[in-house]
Design a binder for these strands. Sequence first.
DNA 1: CCCCAGGTGAAAC
DNA 2: GTTTCACATGGG
Length: 245
Amino acid sequence: VHRSRVYRLSPSPDGRVDWKLVYGDARRAKSDLENLFATETDFKGVADALPWRSDPVLAHAIKTCPGLRILRQPVEQTLLSFLLSPLKRIDQIRAGLLELSRRFGTPIQNGFFAPPSWTDLRQPTESDLRSCGIGYRARGIRLTAEFLERSPGFLDRLSSLATEEARRELIRLPGVGRKIADCVLLFGLGRLEAFPIDTWISRELRESYRLEGFSEEQLHRFAAGHFGEAAGLAQQYLFASARRR
DNA sequence: CCCCAGGTGAAAC
DNA sequence: GTTTCACATGGG
């Protein structure tokens, strides 16, 4: 499901992706999908500019994840999904987002729902939200919905800010800290320099890069210096490669 | 019973 | 400024 449409995607023998529209308006269906996949970005080329030649850990990660790219997801939805993420597994986050979509989102067809917008999320109470099995994360979502109601255009303005400014703004939202802010920057705003440090990346950096004593802030400095302008792409390679083990 | 999961925010050193 | 702790829920 992407922006009120349902697509079916499948790997094509030539290494590309076949797609067809299942439900929704056919107009702009292709360009919306291209935007989601950020097809204008040459991730192969960006990955080649990463320091893999002098970094065997990164080289291995890149080799084991061919074709990896970073989606440019709708900012609203990126924020919502990652507000569900603290101390949850990815399948549980997906389940939570699915339930929120069924309860408060927009029906498309045949049991498919688009995720709720932040306007949709003004209606449910915190206890309504909790009944989706998302625990204490309901509070942050409720408070963020109120914050965005009082600050119209807050999310839209982020794209015009420098990454550091946008990060500082995002962290003002209840339940959003450095990690979730970086996720919104990377997966929602296409800021490839954003480097979210989650439990997996934290472990990977400390173990594979021998950074045991480093604080989280020191890890951020290391990542920016070592991986450079596309640190976030390196993050995804390392994340996928570490989780695969 | 234990431990861990794409962290955050407040309180206590 | 850094460290510690609670926070809901589900599954191994």
